[in-house]
Amino acid sequence: MEISLAAEKILTAPITNSLLTGLVGSAVIIILFRALARNITPRPGSKQNVAEVIVDYFLNLTESITQNHQKTLEFLPLVMTFFIFILLNNWLGLLPGVGSIGFNELKEGKEVFVPLFRSTNADLNTTLALAIFSVGSIQYYGIKHLRLGYFKKFFDFSGVIPCFVGFLELISEFAKVISFSFRLFGNVFAGEVLLAVITSLVPLIAPVPFYALELFVGLIQALVFTMLSLVFMQVATQHH
């Protein structure tokens, strides 16, 4: 059994199989939501109803954290995009064919199987990009709401202890990037490895409960990423 920690390259250098899956996932999201947004009616049909239920759920969730309608409308599009992108890509990675359709390639004299698709979030580059974007937007909203007062959290020279606390706060901003990216990458990649191991041990029926588990984990991780971004944004935009 071959398990590769890094995403495998297909075609030319910068194109990896996880990037390809990510592009497919993005295309699916864009087409799906463009189609949903095209004909919005005051009396929603079944498709629009489902979409409205999801948006309404997130509106309430965001409202319960921010306690401020203005901020809710500001944060909602971004965090919901995170949620939909991560959720759809996690679930796309579980489809049959992802990780099993591919070609053999000669690498260092050995034939190595290279899958054509690989779950996007099972590649540290994708999750790192998501994490940097999330933490970047946290800083952006902090500066936008508190202006220069935002930096008082990090650089407070009124005493030895506030100075040290500010230094720790500064480090924790960088730790956020690492914890965001490794949490998502670890969960999705561990799921892939788990499924590969179970499938190679018992190919019939036994993987089914694990697929159910992975569906659940994909949802939970998308929710955790969203909630954490939201809470950090809320903390960053609050006066102390």
Binding site: F182, R183, G186
Partner: peptide, 22 residues
């Protein structure tokens, strides 16, 4: 959600273990 946070620590260990292994 809280369990997912606690689980994340185990996942970090798992990632490190996988890096060592592979």
């Amino acid at each position: 959600i809280l369990v997912a946070f606690a689980e994340a620590i185990a996942i970090y260990a798992l990632v490190v273990a996988l890096i060592i292994k592979f």
